[in-house]
Amino acid sequence: MAVTGLVLVIFLLFHMFGNLKILISVEDFNHYAGFLRTILNPILPGDTFLWMFRCVLLLCVVLHIWSAARVTKQDYKGKGGRGRYSIKKSLSPDNTYAARTMIWSGIIIVLFVIMHLLQFTIAPAAFGNPHDGPDGRAGMVFTAFGNWIFIVIYVIAMAAICLHVSHGFWSAFATLGANVSGLTRKVLRACSLLVGAVIFFGFLVPPFLIFFGVIN
């Protein structure tokens, strides 16, 4: 779970970095989108690499969800099912809202990712923004974020991801054995919050700028 989670965080950071290219110019963004499909050409033909990359990601997602399901089940059983104490007080700084709601933020993320893939990869046409329009792939993005409904959906989804990562990132390191002292714990926690915040803002900057017409 920790390993797949970290792989997914790294993917997110790259994804976010690529998205930000839209701030430079539409051409840059389209060039980058095109590049993704031709990586390792001509050693590998066409978008082979992209598909390999997608397979790895999918594997990570599947493993992550599978282990999440296992842990959730084990933990639910471990605490003895529903209705445990009549009062329960938390004393740990790590017992955050994010930590308690990992499974729910996770489910929101899964639902969002399905929508997101349908919207931009699998069936963009169904969302009214085909990727072969005049502005290429960037056009897709502009069409989508002109609509306030998608803005709301994306804010919710990014909040979920931010929460998920803010506990998940440090927790992954702890599970991999990196929590070696009180100080490291503080550093890891801070990094975790930072990564969560970076992802939240990094992903939301382009949609908002598009919505308010700062870039077009």
Binding site: D75, S90, L91, S92, N95, S171, T175, N179
Partner: peptide
Amino acid sequence: GFGGCTNIGECAAV
């Protein structure tokens, strides 16, 4: 039948 660890830290706090 013990649960798994999710690094919540309540254990060390008490």
